[in-house]
Structure formats: C-alpha cells, structure tokens
Design a protein around this nucleic acid. Structure first.
Length: 157
DNA sequence: GCCAACGTTGGC
DNA sequence: GCCAACGTTGGC
C-alpha cells in the first residue's frame, strides 16, 4: 500500500553544494546534518519519492532554486565516523549511529531563484516553517499546499 | 561583520 | 532539572 507522499525543504549553501552540482551528479547523499530534529525527519519520515524543495542558504539572495526527490531512505551518515571529516562526531558508533542521511535525486532547476523576500510576499505561503522568524532547521517538512504554490510560481517564470 | 534565535554543554 | 555560557545558523 502506497504511503502518502510527503514534502520537504532542504537547505544547502551554494558554496558547498549548489543545485547545479546536484544536476550534474543526478543523485547525492545528504551528509553533515547534525541537528536532532532534522535527523529525525530524515531517519524516520522521509520515503522514496517524497518531494524536496532545494534551498540555497547563506546565498545572495537566499531562496528556493529547484526541486529534488528522496532517492534512498535513511542510512548511517558515514562522515560522522571519519576523524578527518569536518562533521566527525566521536559519539556516533558504527553499531549505534547517531547521525543519518538520505540520498536525494535531481528533479528540476527553476529558471530563476525564488528569493526569500519573494517567498515572504506570497500570501499562499502563510504559516510556512521557513518563513517563521528564527527558523533555522536545515531539513524541514513542507505542507503540500505550500510545495504546490512554489512549484506553480516557478512555472510562471 | 553583526546579531537574533536557537541548540548544546556542563556545573551545580 | 535548572540555567549560564558557549557555539551555530543564517539573514541582513
């Protein structure tokens, strides 16, 4: 029985991993998330085929740049085991990993970024987590109506 | 570079 | 369990 498709937003700094890189790679593993709430979404709730809004953070301007989808469900984030890695976490053990990641697949890149200031002006996005003051979660759920409104907006570009 | 809004750590 | 100090995120 198919489970209802869910929608997400995932942030990436374009200096580290821009959407163009995902387009080239086609799929990638989403490593380096070190926040428990974000981890729980990835580990427990993300299913193959779920929709993902790809957000560029720490960018000029910040905003949503395209769509991806969940390509592989959660498995241990191996970068946490590597002492040489920036995201190394000695608390995470192979037998009981602390951190998990998923694989995402490129779907589309918007013709133009939908900048954060534009998103804030869209009435249809009222209540969206991303737009909440102080929102910092790098992996967050998105309501279908919000996901659809953003994709629709992108199609009008 | 500043700083608000968190999240984490560790002393008590 | 409380909470001050500290670290991080990320917009501006």
């Amino acid at each position: 029985m198919a489970v209802k498709k869910r929608y997400w937003l995932m942030k990436s700094e374009p200096e580290k991993y821009p959407i163009d890189q995902l387009k080239e790679d086609k799929t990638t593993h989403w490593d380096g998330v070190r926040n428990y709430q974000a981890r729980n979404f990835m580990r427990d709730d993300m299913k193959i085929g779920d929709g993902v809004l790809f957000y560029h953070s720490n960018a000029k301007p910040p905003g949503i740049v395209g769509v991806a989808e969940i390509h592989k469900e959660s498995y241990p984030d191996f970068t946490a085991f590597d002492p040489q890695d920036k995201h190394y976490d000695p608390k995470s053990k192979h037998e009981s990993p602390t951190w998990y990641m998923v694989d995402v697949k490129f779907v589309s890149k918007f013709k133009e970024i939908i900048a954060l200031n534009e998103l804030r002006e869209m009435k249809t996005l009222e209540g969206m987590e991303l737009l909440r003051k102080g929102s910092r979660l790098s992996v967050q759920p998105v309501e279908k109506k919000h996901f659809d409104a953003i994709v629709k907006r992108a199609e009008k570009q």
